[in-house]
């Protein structure tokens, strides 16, 4: 029965991820809050579960010439180092503490994106006709 819930939670996260909305940020809290999976385990599962989907997406996006190769390397130059450091530090952090930080991270990022969405909506209402309705959200 538990397997069913894991698949369902994976489905929800996958749908959001497939739509380009950062499904991982919801897969982790769904696993910890509903299934009582440990914070570290949920984070490890999230990182690995999205790899096959990312590969498929990159193949499609490359064909459609949507990937800006020039940007990737300079960002990765520093990011590869900090991503390993972050993972090691996370595994040294206590579960309760990590949950607290992750919760604050979700509130901050969700709040920032929500504010940006509201500001955009208000602006587009003020200058109707000039707004682009097809802009995508993460």
């Amino acid at each position: 029965m538990k397997v069913f819930w894991y698949i369902l939670i994976g489905l929800c996260g996958g749908v959001l991820g497939g739509m380009g909305m950062g499904g991982g940020t919801l897969l982790i809290p769904m696993l910890t809050l509903f299934m009582k999976v440990g914070q570290h385990a949920a984070q490890g599962i999230n990182l690995i579960a999205f790899i096959p989907m990312s590969v498929a997406a990159i193949v499609i996006h490359t064909r459609n010439k949507l990937i800006e190769k020039k940007i990737i390397l300079p960002i990765l130059a520093s990011a590869v180092l900090t991503s390993a450091a972050g993972a090691f530090l996370s595994l040294k952090t206590g579960v309760g503490e990590l949950r607290l930080y992750f919760g604050i991270f979700l509130i901050a990022v969700g709040g920032a994106y929500l504010t940006a969405a509201i500001v955009k909506k208000v602006k587009s209402k003020k200058q109707k006709g000039t707004a682009t309705p097809d802009e995508r959200h993460i």
Binding site: G18, A41, G44, I45
Partner: peptide, 23 residues
């Protein structure tokens, strides 16, 4: 830190969900 049985189930869901999401 990643439990493999949960990973297999949730990962399967993510792949199927990813296709649905893209459509």
């Amino acid at each position: 830190a990643a439990k493999l049985d949960i990973l297999a189930a949730a990962g399967g869901g993510v792949i199927a969900g990813g296709i649905i999401g893209a459509i």
